[in-house]
Nucleic acid binder design. Structure first.
Lengths: 263, 263
DNA sequence: ATGTGATATAACTCAGACAATTGATTGTGA
DNA sequence: TCACAATCAATTGTCTGAGTTATATCACAT
């Protein structure tokens, strides 16, 4: 009857008990990673609120039944992502939400594990609508033959695999990655990579709930063609259209409707 | 005569020697943080190349003369930022540059410690030119009186302090932060916060090298006024102009000229 | 070539101790 | 009553040394 966090699957691969091992497949190989994951998700869910201080290392590690080292390493990970802050005597406290690196790919992934708020999804798509069309425009201006080849290959895979398979989603990511490389802008590429990964996560949602969706390949192909012929304006427009389609699909699968994007 | 990394200031506050303690003020309070900092900068500088595996924990910690715990925690931090990857038997290796979270505020800060490449600076401003005008537009549409009040207050401080003082730069950040809050888009705010912090760093550069610069307050004031009267178009335009000014200043202070932004 | 198993090497985890930092408390003097 | 200095105690930080686990590599058999 401690103040423990409630009802979590075990962190550690239970070596002995053969009982229901299908518990949660959430735990990655490393213990510190698994704990960081769990705590991160809990913070995002609000189980630990900003400003709240976590139980001290000794208590935490003992109630979790892991060593202090493993616990501390987990905390280091969260601190590196701006989600907690530790000081001697003061303890480890959850930082204000503003300081969280929510664009960190891992954090974004955690976000999508607990169905994220509509506002957040909307914001993410809004950001995509700002950056990706601009990226497509830059890509049209700067792409090389090598970039085109990468994008074309990814499109072929998407076409045969569809977004229902893991390979298909991977190809989707590869397409966008190649596009981002073509922009020649490292920061932009990093940003889009993070968002892309998150959106891929949400694509999995979409596939799961709604059985069939509009075929995304033609939209992608249009973007590709515009970039190929170095038509920056068309690239921008096609990309914007593509994202609006995706937003539309996503909205359709969420129970309540999101507010419509700025006209 | 080990394979140690060359010529670094000591990680640890040398407690005994009163000799030249003005060594490097680089070391923060915590040992693991200081080491993560050092390694992070070294990776960004290319001292450790992507794909390269670091010496194992035992060797590393002993040559650095710190405990394995501290070393491991430093590595956890870097791993959390996507810069290294550890696996049993394989060791800890530097990941490919693509996977680094260069938009992480801390990484961005490290970047600016070793004078970053012109391409990188250019890319950062390009990203600003994409996101911040759009953000200003959104802010114009969604701002509340509270947001206006925050921005106004920040502007007042900027006016009296100028960018030469720490308080002035802080006020600059606060202005942009308030603006980002006004957009109501958390992801966008997070992105701009990171970039803003990095740009503030570079502002310090500018101040140091060139003694006097154009007064930035009028430009900011124009953005503020546009947002106040909910003129989205003007807000976008003024913000774009502001960033181009900043880019211009930055370019002027860098030895070689950056290539001009897309026409 | 391809798959299978042993082996060595690295990270991973643990336990317990001590050190360093710092928020809070108490005491002191004006 | 207030401001400031010394003390205390709680918490993180660091260290050491040991055992455990995962896995890349290599030898071997198929």
């Amino acid at each position: 009857m401690t103040i423990d966090t409630p009802s979590h699957p075990p962190l550690r691969r239970t070596p002995v008990s053969d009982q229901a091992q299908s518990f949660g497949l959430t735990f990655q190989g490393r213990l510190h990673g698994a704990l960081a994951h769990r705590l991160g998700v809990d913070i995002l869910k609000g189980v630990y609120a900003p400003g709240q201080v976590l139980p001290n290392e000794i208590d935490s590690s003992s109630t979790l039944d892991i060593s202090r080292s493993a616990y501390r390493e987990a905390i280091r990970i969260l601190a590196a992502k701006g989600m907690v802050e530790s000081r001697p005597k003061a303890g480890t406290k959850v930082t204000e939400r503003k300081r969280w690196n929510i664009l960190d790919p891992e954090v974004l992934g955690w976000m999508f594990e607990t169905e994220p708020s509509e506002d957040f999804i909307k914001g993410l798509f809004e950001l995509r609508l700002i950056t990706e069309p601009a990226a497509a425009e830059l890509a049209a201006l700067r792409r090389t033959e090598a970039h085109l080849k990468q994008m074309d290959a990814a499109l072929d895979v998407m076409e045969t695999e569809t977004l229902a398979t893991e390979a298909g989603r991977k190809a989707d990511l590869e397409f966008h990655d190649a596009l981002m490389n073509a922009t020649g802008n490292e920061a932009l590429a990093s940003l889009s990579h993070s968002i892309g990964a998150a959106v891929a996560w949400s694509t999995r949602f979409k596939q799961r709930s709604g059985p069939l969706l509009r075929d995304p390949v033609p939209d992608h192909r249009r973007v590709y063609d515009a970039i190929r012929r170095q038509d920056a304006g068309a690239a921008r427009w096609c990309m914007e259209s593509l994202i609006r389609m995706a937003l539309d699909d996503t909205q359709r699968t969420m129970k309540t409707q999101l507010i419509e994007p700025r006209g």
